[in-house]
Design a protein around this nucleic acid. Structure first.
Lengths: 195, 195
DNA sequence: GGGGGAGTTCATCATGCGTTGAGTTCTACA
DNA sequence: TGTAGAACTCAACGCATGATGAACTCCCCC
């Protein structure tokens, strides 16, 4: 088709591939996404994908980069007053999802975690050890592991219902409507009694 | 290898294939499970799988049969007193998951729903329209669609955390310990104020 | 006891997969 | 200006996939 060899100037090829990969993995999960389909979507030769990312796994891993630094999130959460934490958690969580159009990397991560053992490990590590456990510790009500797991259950469930199953009316409700709905639940998991 | 033709007696081949399929789909999801792998696990020729189930999709659909009749579940839930519904819902939900060793069909359904559009539709239909919405209507506090979606978010999140990510301590907690933890959340979604 | 249908095997098809390697053109730095 | 290496194409590898169709054996009903 086209002549081989490097193109003049700064072609944004690598970025194009990465964008296509995020979209594809987000839409179909790991197994159902092929390197060749990503290449096709990026209008690029399949070998080039592997040239940049080494392997399908490498590509997948690269597609999972978060739209925000988790450490910053945690810091922000630890700085909010204890009795507003529940709602803030909802707002922060949904903010990260909505930071990328189509929820690319977040959806890819969730879809990945559900059928790819390795990325399940990764999500568990990130969401629980890095984010929710420190927040639960900061809330200072004891039993942080259990509280973190409860928080994860409500937050992940929200993501599944809103972004994967797209259940109405939650799927199209604005964040400001969801915060007071789910906030009290998270608040109880954070600081309420957990028998 | 073996001679072709029908075997004498009642070989439980169809059932063996179905069992292998449930296990495989539950473990790896739709895309990552191959007809041939199922056949291998059932010690059977791949054609036989398609002879019985028509296609990979047919096999998948067959693997999703619930271990319980949803109508019965709903009846049971509608018959419990309003103020105990939250905890009963947790117990019932987890009861269905734990009814099959390894959570076969339930996990297959969840894993399927997360990356297979058709089974997402199915799960939404079953969990919301067939089960949770009627329960929310029965609770009689208004706004059943929103309440049902909230219920789904907590219940599905619990399933993800407990059976997919296997987050401790929720993963190995007995049902009786989880009921009082999550019951109040569901109770609020059912009968509490939802602003 | 004959025949239709169900269970079973095997060979085969076209397609798509992830990955590799060789070859070509451009850039960056010496 | 020379050259190492990055960007890029193309052809090919070996393998797995879902599906089909023919052949064969057994069961059950007439």
């Amino acid at each position: 088709m086209t002549t081989p060899g490097r193109r003049p100037g700064d072609s944004g090829t690598r970025a194009a591939i990465l964008a296509a990969a995020k979209e594809a993995f987000a839409a179909s999960g790991y197994a159902a996404t092929s390197v060749r389909a990503v290449a096709r979507a990026a209008a690029v030769d399949p070998s080039l994908v592997l040239h940049f990312f080494g392997s399908k796994d490498g590509l997948f891993e690269a597609a999972l980069e978060l739209p925000m630094d988790p450490a910053v999130l945690v810091q922000g959460l630890l700085a909010t007053p204890r009795d507003g934490l529940g709602e803030t958690l909802v707002r922060t969580f949904l903010g990260v999802w909505d930071a990328t159009p189509g929820q690319g990397p977040m959806l890819a991560m969730l879809r990945g975690a559900v059928s790819h053992e390795d990325s399940a490990d990764k999500l568990r590590e990130l969401l629980l050890r890095v984010i929710l456990r420190p927040v639960a510790v900061g809330a200072g009500a004891g039993d942080p592991d259990r509280r973190a797991a409860l928080l994860a259950s409500q937050l992940l469930g929200l993501a599944v219902v809103r972004y994967v199953l797209r259940v109405e009316p939650l799927a199209s409700a604005p964040v400001e409507e969801l915060a007071p709905l789910l906030g009290p639940t998270l608040q109880r998991y954070l600081t309420g009694p957990v028998p």
